[in-house]
Design a binder for these strands. Structure first.
Lengths: 125, 125
DNA sequence: CTTTCTGTATCACAAATACTAATACAGTTA
DNA sequence: TAACTGTATTAGTATTTGTGATACAGAAAG
């Protein structure tokens, strides 16, 4: 599914979260699609299942996946993720970064262009 | 200048960085304005000078302040901060967040409106 | 030149937190 | 029952965090 980099100073579970998010956001993983079980992925990456669990737990809290005991973990359908709890936090992060970029005299047109670009790219899929 | 919250689980130097950033970005601290010395602020907040030093060092790396030995630390003028090293990193963060928000079906008009709002507010000052 | 203020660097230590691991528990399915 | 799921508990280690003490270096003021 993907590889981890031990030499990276970033925690393993963070790396897992990022890769998984990328797969979900990019559309490589569809709604309700089953993702590898904690043990499966652990074996595949040669790390401890608990590390996977931590990553999955975070991803669930952030609304990207949902887990069902004895069944597995799955990608959250968009409709359900629309009003997930982390949304406001994300927006606050967004505002913070925009404020900083503004302080650095980044033209707002540039930021708006960036947004449009991102939205267009994904729409094409 | 500001207060810290010991009960906060966030590191002291992180709190200092944030408060200082806010003061700078909001315009409360002007370009080249002198900020408290490491020892001054340490005494004022009743913490160790090394903690302040760590915060200041980070802020300098991020381009918000500059320090001159034996003189003090000062707010980086906007012109100089235009091409500071952390800018690209910030933009990457920006793109990441926008991608996530898009996945959550946040309308791009909403994000654009947010940006305009932030830029307008500060412009008025 | 001496004193006194700046920032900076280094080393050390304790406490807290982060990270990973080992193991056991619990529910579902076949 | 067996074999798969996620989940919870516990534990040990590594890293981060905050602090302290001390020393160095440059600038300003007397």
């Amino acid at each position: 599914m993907f590889q981890l980099d031990i030499r990276e100073r970033k925690p393993l579970y963070e790396q897992i979260k990022e890769k998984m998010k990328t797969l979900i956001i990019s559309g490589a993983l569809k709604s309700d699609e089953k993702i590898p079980s904690v043990r499966e992925l652990a074996q595949s990456l040669t790390i401890n299942p608990n590390t996977i669990q931590k990553a999955y737990k975070d991803l669930e809290t952030e609304g990207f996946i949902y887990s069902v005991r004895a069944k597995g973990s799955f990608v959250t359908p968009l409709e359900q993720s629309k009003n997930y709890p982390g949304r406001d936090k994300l927006k606050q992060e967004f505002e913070k970064i925009v404020s900083e970029l503004m302080y650095l005299k980044e033209p707002q047109e540039q930021l708006i262009a960036l947004i449009k670009n991102i939205y267009e790219k994904k729409e094409v899929k």
